[in-house]
Amino acid sequence: MYCITCSKLSLYIICKNCQNTLLKPVFNKREIEDGFYNYSFYPYSEIEDLISSKYHFHGDKIYNILARLSFLEFTKKFKIDEQILAIPIDDHSRHNFSHTAILAKHLKSSIITPKYNTLKAKNIVKYAGKDLEFRQKNPRKFQLTNIHNQTTILCDDLITTGATIKEAKKVLEKKNNKVLFSLTLDDAKL
């Protein structure tokens, strides 16, 4: 197999050299609502082609690499004195795998437990390339099951306007859940 970034022969879809040099995460913080933050690891422009792999059969391999380099490393440094649920935003498997479930899986630790199939969008609308006005007029209409009175974090692959994350946060809070922050692989505003 050849590395998709440098085209050199590799045992991995992204070779170890490219993982260590091109995909070194940088922790970024953005306030998306008063006192509520999203943390991301890459500027969207740097991994745009890798993010779009979620629409292809090999995307799960790429998402596992990105999640291992960023989300897993985050869990090694994150400390809190309570148990937390990691909630993937709309962890559907429309493309043979769920990219948000892969991200949540890499957050698993002694204090973070991924909780799958709990926050699902009833409105399957594509936001790619759409502005904030379109996103606000076409909410995802999330449905939450089996989570109440918990401390949570949200995870998704990309933050653009923050509309999806804010909508998901509100749905969780209606069931008396505390949402500490959200984590995304990348930020379109970086």
Rank of each mutant, 00 (worst) to 15 (best):
A121H: 10
A163M: 08
K137V: 12
A101M: 14
I102G: 04
Y127H: 05
K141W: 03
S98E: 04
D81N: 15
K105N: 09
S93W: 14
D81A: 12
K169Y: 00
L85T: 11
R94M: 07
I84H: 03
R135C: 14
D90N: 11
Q136M: 13
H148E: 07
D156Q: 06
D90R: 03
I102L: 11
H92L: 13
F78Q: 07
D131E: 05
I153K: 04
R94Y: 13
L107C: 08
I80P: 01
K130D: 15
K79I: 14
H148A: 12
D91Y: 01
T100H: 07
N138S: 05
I80H: 08
K137I: 10
G162C: 02
H106V: 03
D157G: 11
I102P: 05
F134H: 06
T151K: 05
D91M: 05
K79H: 15
K115D: 05
K130S: 12
D90G: 05
R135E: 13
K166D: 11
V125W: 14
I87K: 02
L144M: 06
Q83P: 12
K126D: 09
E173N: 00
D157L: 09
G162K: 05
L103D: 04
Y116C: 06
T152K: 08
F134N: 08
K130Y: 14
K115M: 13
S98Y: 13
T118M: 00
H95P: 06
A121D: 03
S93Y: 15
T160F: 02
K115T: 09
D81R: 07
H92Y: 13
L144A: 02
V125N: 07
N146R: 11
I165A: 06
I112T: 14
S110Y: 11
C155I: 14
H148C: 03
T145N: 12
K120A: 08
K105I: 03
V171S: 02
I147T: 07
